[in-house]
Structure formats: C-alpha cells, structure tokens
C-alpha cells in the first residue's frame, strides 16, 4: 500500500469522488444526445491540451479546456466543408490530437517530464491539488444547478432535438452548454483518471444506469451514483495495489456495466 499523508489521502478521495460525479453526470447527456464520438474526440483533445500546457509551463487545465472545446466547435464546420460523415472527421481529429499529445509530451522540459507524462496518460492520485478540488466543487455545483433549472428543457431535447426546437426551445444553446460542460469535466478529471481513459468515466456509468431504468429522472440520479462508487472503489484498489487509478476506476465501471447487462430487467424475457 502506498503510504500517504492523511490530508493528501482525503484530498485524493474527494477529487476522485467529484471527478466521478461530474463525468458520469454529463455522460447522461453525452450518451443520449449521440455526442459519444464528439466527447471521445474532446477527451483526447483535452489530453493533447494538457500536454501542451505542461510543455509551455502554463496551467494545463486552461490549455486542455481550450483544446477540448475548440475541437468540439470546429467539428461541425469541418464536416460541412469536407462534405463527409462527422464520424470520419472525428476519426481524423482524434488521430491528430493523439499525435499532437505525444509530440507535446516529448517536448515537456525538465527531468520530471517522464513522470508528468505518465500522470496525464494514466492519471495519478498524487496529482490532485487543493485548487483542483475547488474547481471540481465549482463544476459540480454549476452542473447540478444547470440540471435543476433546465431539467425540462434538457429532457425535451434528450427525447428529440427537432421536436424540442419546434416547440420553442433554443436547442443550439443547450447543445453548446453540454459541449462546454463536457470539455470542463474532461479537463478537470484528466489528472485523476488520465487522458486515455477519462472518456470511459463519461460513458460507462451512464450506460450502466440506462440498463435499469426507463425514467429519465432515475438515470440522472443513478448515473452519478454509479460514477462515484466506481471512482471510490477504483481509488481504494489503486491505493492498495499501486495500479494506476484511471485504469482501476475504468475497470470497476466496466465490471458494473457488464453486470448491468447481465442483470438488466430490460432484458428479462416475459414468461
């Protein structure tokens, strides 16, 4: 077991829980709005952005947020200009972002470069600072307030975007709000879960919740709960085994998803 100071331990577990909350909450919208591919691309752009920040010795949170959101925003116009399926452009951007990330990692100055690179690749329980916790609390609050205030608009959009637009909701505004919150969640969680795996934390808990419920309200409640539990167990496994925390969290959330598929009441045959 890694020996940690109590304060560092508390900071780390709170960081993991908050990352679980923000990623799996925003995941509900990412999955239902068919933004999975965009989100996947954004999480890798955030990874490239974090590497870029470390290379230039600027705050990696800011650079990953810019990279991630910028990627989401340019995706539409590029798809339109190239007259190709958005998935083709997503694949193209994804490979560029990964390539850029490795180039930036290679250029990170100083002797600590390799350690830092590994942290943003796989995540680390050591990398959560007091400021990260404050930012995660801020994002958790924004996300919760956003859902409470705009629940009915969000639900209408989740059901069918065209119908929601036709009944007077400015769906573009909510679409960009979800993209921005996704970029924010990914950028903040990258240090804990790692750039290569953070997207799994967005998709897995939500996909697990979708196996059990037909009521959108319950999905909104249970997805973050599953995310928090996955992060907490993943954190403990990482603490006791020295496994990378990101990998531990993702494996736990994947096990939950596999169990959900197996036990899902939606798949039970009527006798």
């Amino acid at each position: 077991m890694i020996e940690l100071q109590i304060s560092l331990l508390i900071t780390s577990i709170i960081g993991a829980i908050l990352a679980g909350y923000v990623c799996s909450t925003i995941g509900v919208f990412v999955v239902r709005m068919n933004l999975s591919s965009i989100g996947f691309c954004m999480s890798h752009a955030a990874f490239a952005g974090a590497a870029f920040g470390l290379m230039l010795s600027i705050d990696p949170l800011v650079s990953s947020l810019i990279f991630s959101f910028f990627t989401a925003v340019i995706l539409g116009p590029i798809t339109e200009k190239a007259k190709l399926e958005s998935n083709v452009i997503i694949g193209f951007l994804f490979s560029i972002m990964i390539a850029l990330a490795f180039i930036f990692i290679n250029l990170i100055p100083g002797q600590a470069a390799s350690g830092v690179s590994l942290r943003i690749l796989w995540g680390s329980i050591f990398s959560v600072g007091y400021n990260d916790i404050l930012m995660l609390i801020f994002l958790s609050s924004i996300l919760t307030i956003f859902i409470l205030i705009f629940y009915k608009e969000l639900m209408a959009i989740m059901f069918n975007r065209k119908l929601a637009e036709s009944s007077g909701i400015n769906t573009k505004l909510f679409y960009f709000a979800v993209l921005f919150l996704t970029a924010f969640a990914v950028s903040l969680s990258i240090r804990i879960v790692g750039g290569l795996l953070v997207f799994a934390l967005i998709i897995n808990p939500t996909s697990t919740a979708y196996q059990f419920f037909y009521d959108f309200k319950k999905i909104i409640i249970f997805s973050p709960l599953i995310g928090i539990i996955s992060c907490s167990i993943g954190f403990l496994i990482s603490l006791y085994t020295d496994f990378p925390i990101g990998a531990s969290i993702v494996i736990i959330s994947a096990i939950f998803f596999a169990l959900a598929i197996f036990f899902s009441p939606k798949r039970k045959k009527i006798k």
Partner: peptide, 16 residues
Amino acid sequence: NAPFLCKDVVMSGKTG
C-alpha cells in the same frame, strides 16, 4: 430502451 415515460414526452411539448 429510451428512458422516457409517456407523460414526460407529452409534457415536453409544453416546455417551450
């Protein structure tokens, strides 16, 4: 498997 109840779908018409 869409996670919406009929009453919520009908209500969504009033949202705007």
